[in-house]
Structure formats: structure tokens, C-alpha cells
Design a protein around this nucleic acid. Structure first.
Lengths: 235, 235
DNA sequence: GAATAAAGTGTAAATTGCACACTAAGTAGT
DNA sequence: ACTACTTAGTGTGCAATTTACACTTTATTC
């Protein structure tokens, strides 16, 4: 009595570059020859099959680490996608065959999202067969499988969890100004926030610690820098 | 390139009997002889392997329907459990063998929770090999696999989603009083609520509709009855 | 008709959320 | 050194929401 599906993890990796919210995607060619003709490029979320002796969380961490060589960053399981046709029924089965799944088999995927400081991001070229690219969340192209659905849901969940979990900081550099933080919130939530009210709220959180340091290299009033203290439990 | 895991769904089915919040569990004997010696009984959440051509949601609905023969009731995926040892590494592998999974294989499970009116619950004896029993959430015995973790997480998620999704009503009989509803909320949230404030909040929701009918057979002032209108979108 | 048991109802105070505009501090250019 | 520019930083009043709190009503039972 078995059903024998393949199980993968996919990771929606968010980054922020000061302009827009980005997602990391993998661009992958059809063949291994290295010759990428434009219309044979497939774009997908980073993901991999789960190893037989590895937990789901460990698997997602591994995918993340292969991309960024970073440990201990925010990573959250948010949904499992298991439509029978999500992989099998695709048009371009040739591409599939060369990618990672046997097109005769069904793959369900456990999706995680993750927030990384782009300053820490060090692409590891050899880890995925394709090239890693950052794409603005508003400009995500057609992705493989149901990865557009996965990315969309990740963004929805990020928005829902942003306030309650105070995770926005994870996307900023080590030291940041409150204006940078506010801009990030505005971009994620896709709405303007009032400066004074925003600052009032932030200053209630004692995970946000002012530094004895000011912003440098700007031609206007330099801003106070802050850092985020992960260890300090909020409530 | 395959990993070949088994995938199941497990369902945490909540019910309310006016006293406490209950969970439906399946009691299962070691052998098929029908002779259940007490210490060979295993208790577990209802669940099953996902069929090869069936979506995860459909699979959870099927499990639910096998138990209750009910359709269209609230059912929500809340987490996927995939520790490599969650099934394989158990002590009592003999029992496992007879249950539903090959102990040599790894099973990951997508967990759903669901809310059912106990008045609607009609156990379908033949659908699961074992006997279905309602157990108070505070008195859940040792369950198979990691089912205690699953049940605990389901309860956490139910608490979190109770307010935002207005799903408490799903647990009450067709016609209910506000006191019954308040008691249910108090039990789920495990705290006392203020009667007047509670009623103010409920009366804001236009999904809760007063009936031209009063409670009968009580030795005190009879209460107004209400029903819940699922169709009316809240916001 | 008296006792009992739960239903049902309003108000005031405290808290939180929201809108709103000016001063401060630095840089760049003259 | 002064002016223009640009973003940082700060407080208050009003509205809305949340919280705390106690008595009257309506039925049943004896």
C-alpha cells in the first residue's frame, strides 16, 4: 500500500534592494551544452527534491544555502502544492525531462519563503544548473510548473505575517535607517504609511536598537542608524 | 532522479458538544480478528495516503467524507509534517506494518483541520478499519506517529484563525444561542469573555441571523436562537 | 407567588488608531 | 558665508475601538 510520489521543496526568496521587493529565480536552459537560445530558457523558483533522510525544513535550508551559503535566516513553510497536474501535465515535457522530475511521476512540493539581506547574498554559481536572477515581484515572468501560484501565495503570506512577526528587518542591511524600513514596509504592503505613526510603532519594539552612528555620504541631514536584535523576544 | 516518498493527508476534525472542544480519533486494533486487547489499541488521527490522481484538498475531503459523509464543510490545510523519522523510526513497527504504511518507507503528511457540527456527524463504520471516538482536546492520549504534534498545531492554528475567519459557528448546531456561541469561543480561546462585549461584536457580523424562535425546554428565560449564514461574505 | 437561573441590555473610561505640518541638520553650489 | 535643497525628526487633537462593569427581564419550578 504505497502511493510513491516525489516530494520537493521550493523556496520563494525575497530580497530588497532599496527600490523594490525582489524574488530570486533560476534561469535554466534546455540542454547542458551551455548554448542558451532565448526561447528555450525556463525560469523557476529554486527548489529540489527532498533527500530521503532529510526533514522538509532541512531540505529548504539546503536549497537556500546552496544559493546563498547563508545559515540561520528566516525560513518559513507556508503551503504545500499537490495538484496532480502541477508537474505532469505541462506542455513542454521535453524541458521537464531535462530539469529535475520524471514527467511520468507526480511531484508535490512544500513551499517555503525566506527573507535575505541582499548585501549578504553570494550566488553560488555551481549549485543550481541555471543562473540566479533577482526579479521585482511585480515583474515576475511566466515560471515553470505552478511556480507563479507559489510566488503569489508567498507574497500574500508575507504581507499577512509582516506585522505580526516583525520580519521586515530581515530584508535590510545590518544597519538601516527608519526611512529605509518604512520604504520597505510600504513596498511590501503596497501602500503609503504615515511617517510619524510608523516611527511611533517601531519605537515600541525593543528589538530595534538605535546605534551610536549616523548615516554617511548623503547630502542632507544624516539619519540615525538602527540594528535589529533577533534574540530579543518581543512579547 | 526520484525520491519516492509516500504522501498522506491527516485530518484534525474538531467538534463541540456543549461542554468541551473535541477531536475525532480512530482507535485501531493490532490484528483483524476483532479481538482488541487493551494494550494493542492504537489511536490516531483519521488520514490516508493520497491517491495518485487526486489533489491534496480532494484527498482531505475524501477522508472527511468517509468519516462523516458530509460535504462542503470548512477544511483547511495548515501544515505539512515530514520528519524522516515521523513514521519510519517508531518502536512498534509491527503495528505499523498492519496499519497503512510500509515501515521501510518514509511518509510525509499534509495536515488539514476541519470543523463539524456534532449533530451532523454520522460515523461511517466501514470507512476506517477502526472505531471513531470523540476526545476532549485536553485529554488526547498518546497517538500514533507524530499525531500529537499535528493535533497540537491544529489547535494553535484554530485559535489564531477563529477571530479572523469567523469559523466558530461551524461547530454549533444549526440553531444556536449566543450563550452557546460564547461558551464555544471561551473554550477554544481558553479564556473568559465579557458577555456584553461579545454580543456587541457578534451583532456586527451580518452572517449571524436571528430567528423567530426561542430556545425551548429550559428552566429559565429562553434565549433567542440564531443561525449562521455561510453565504454572506463578511467584508 | 416566591425563588431560581440564565438572558438580555448601556454607558463611561481608557486605549489605540489616524490625520496632519513644521523645524532641524547636513550638503552643494554660489 | 550664505542660500537652496533634501531628507530627518518630532507632537497633538480627534475619532474609533476596546474594555470594564451591574441590573432588569422572563421564563420555570416548587
Amino acid at each position: 500500500m504505497q502511493n510513491q510520489l516525489d516530494v520537493s521543496v521550493d523556496c520563494v526568496l525575497f530580497g530588497f534592494d532599496g527600490e523594490g521587493l525582489k524574488v530570486l529565480l533560476i534561469e535554466q536552459g534546455l540542454d547542458e551544452s551551455g548554448s542558451l537560445s532565448k526561447d528555450q530558457v525556463q525560469t523557476a523558483l529554486p527548489g529540489d527534491l527532498v533527500y530521503l533522510d532529510e526533514s522538509l525544513d532541512a531540505s529548504a535550508e539546503r536549497v537556500l544555502k546552496e544559493l546563498t551559503s547563508l545559515d540561520g535566516i528566516y525560513l518559513k513553510q507556508f503551503h504545500t502544492f499537490g495538484d496532480p497536474q502541477r508537474v505532469k501535465g505541462l506542455k513542454d515535457q521535453d524541458w521537464l525531462r531535462s530539469f529535475r522530475a520524471n514527467p511520468e511521476r507526480r511531484v508535490i512540493t512544500v513551499a517555503y519563503y525566506s527573507l535575505v539581506k541582499m548585501e549578504d547574498y553570494q550566488p553560488q554559481p555551481s549549485s543550481f544548473a541555471g543562473k540566479a536572477i533577482w526579479v521585482d515581484v511585480n515583474e515576475i515572468p511566466d515560471l515553470a510548473f505552478d511556480h507563479n501560484d507559489i510566488a503569489e501565495k508567498a507574497l500574500t503570506v508575507l504581507r499577512e505575517e509582516l506585522d505580526s512577526k516583525h520580519i521586515g528587518f530581515e530584508l535590510l542591511p545590518e544597519k538601516f535607517t527608519l526611512s529605509q524600513l518604512q520604504l520597505l514596509y510600504e513596498i511590501i504592503l503596497d501602500k503609503k504609511l504615515d511617517k510619524r505613526n510608523f516611527r511611533k510603532n517601531i519605537k515600541k519594539m525593543d528589538q530595534v536598537i538605535p546605534l551610536d552612528e549616523k548615516q554617511q555620504g548623503v547630502f542632507h541631514k544624516p539619519a540615525q542608524l538602527f540594528r535589529f536584535d533577533k534574540e530579543n523576544p518581543e512579547d
